[in-house]
Design a protein around this nucleic acid. Sequence first.
DNA 1: CGATTCGTTGACGAGGGTCAATGCACGTGG
DNA 2: CCACGTGCATTGACCCTCGTCAACGAATCG
Lengths: 238, 238
Amino acid sequence: MIGPLIKKLNHYMDISDKETQLLIDSITRTISINRGENIITEGSKPGETHLMLEGWACRYKLMGNGKFHIMAYLIPGDLCDVHVAILDQMDHSIRTLTPATVACIPHEKIDYIMEHHYRLARALFWSTLVDEAILREWLVSTGHRSADRRLAHVFCELLVRSRSAGLSDDNSFNLPLTQEELGDSMGMTVVHTNRVIQKLRSEGLITLQNKRLVIHDWERMVAFAEFNPNYLHRQKSY
Amino acid sequence: MIGPLIKKLNHYMDISDKETQLLIDSITRTISINRGENIITEGSKPGETHLMLEGWACRYKLMGNGKFHIMAYLIPGDLCDVHVAILDQMDHSIRTLTPATVACIPHEKIDYIMEHHYRLARALFWSTLVDEAILREWLVSTGHRSADRRLAHVFCELLVRSRSAGLSDDNSFNLPLTQEELGDSMGMTVVHTNRVIQKLRSEGLITLQNKRLVIHDWERMVAFAEFNPNYLHRQKSY
DNA sequence: CGATTCGTTGACGAGGGTCAATGCACGTGG
DNA sequence: CCACGTGCATTGACCCTCGTCAACGAATCG
């Protein structure tokens, strides 16, 4: 169940069986959540950290005008809120995009790892820094990339991340998002998202059907999206 | 010199004289940098952490098409790269926007604080988490706010941050940016930035001249920008 | 079999990008 | 002290990307 996290961390440093076991032992409970339900809500201060085991979720913010913006996708192996122990409260919410199973790790266990297991602590810290780097890349994307390249770019990122978590081993992966959700994350409307996807399809770059995305020509896609995976900080090839 | 950092951290927890002294003692050297020079460049791995003492800087990324995007403003009291000790290399660069003085703190000193001074470590960690929260807010801004509200929003943020760092005590602050730089951070062109500023001026919300920004009616500005300072995580009033 | 949810399409218009020129405040050198 | 260059703010004209509104089709489901 915790495989995706271990696989991901392995792209930073080798995680031993003992360290894996330590992580497993830190999980006090595992919960199943329906699609569209909140894992954490803005203003709250959860007492435990959540780890995605199965399914997708997203960080999001609800705006005054009723719109909502997705700031991150969380896939299996991603940690939802390692940091919240420090902060007074969440400044955003997290909800599932598919049915999901989530592991809960009490803050004490995290603190224990941080204090007594330097290597593992570094690996966890690394993963939060990568999340931050992704955030920066999305900011650049929405600020200065055209809609088609922006979408192509996030597709490249999600393939690399899916492969890192062991969720794919070719040039395709499950993309369980509606076009509306894709749009909400890239700062564009459903209508435009739909048209851009059609353009990428017609140019032979991708196939997207039944919630599965295929990237046909990785090199061409990377060139089109100006995708440079350095911000994902995989020390080893994905 | 290190006042702004202490003042900022004080919004999270009281920093004792001893802790302040510890921070000061961690600084091995202080450097002066001209405007427009890089403090750290993408791909490098600096051996020390940089703290802004005077002047402004920015995180930025250079894009393929030559455009450049500013992802964060760094003002006195802000840390440039606490995290880089963990990562293989920088995935972005940092350069000054004004002449600046910067303090250098070797990673060992940071590690020492992290290991032996839990309170101070928490405070530093808090400040990096706030930086991340700002990043999220900017992402939402560029994704889902109109140009005028976006600009108004960042002005609100910068006032709060300036006041937190003790750089202002009324509704005005130094904004040493060109309109081009403002645009580069908000994902808009100079031309449009200029027009939006004029609109904000004509609506009586702000005055901006000689690199000084005045917000005339804070309440109205906050309402217009839909500014909610919770993401800055100041536990105490600013 | 309606009711939903999601993808798709069309028509229209506005927000904001692009290009280009002008003004204005400087600093520098002659 | 003037001539000139440079950096930055400002304007105008034009147009394209993308948002908005609205309708329709396809698939799924109780």
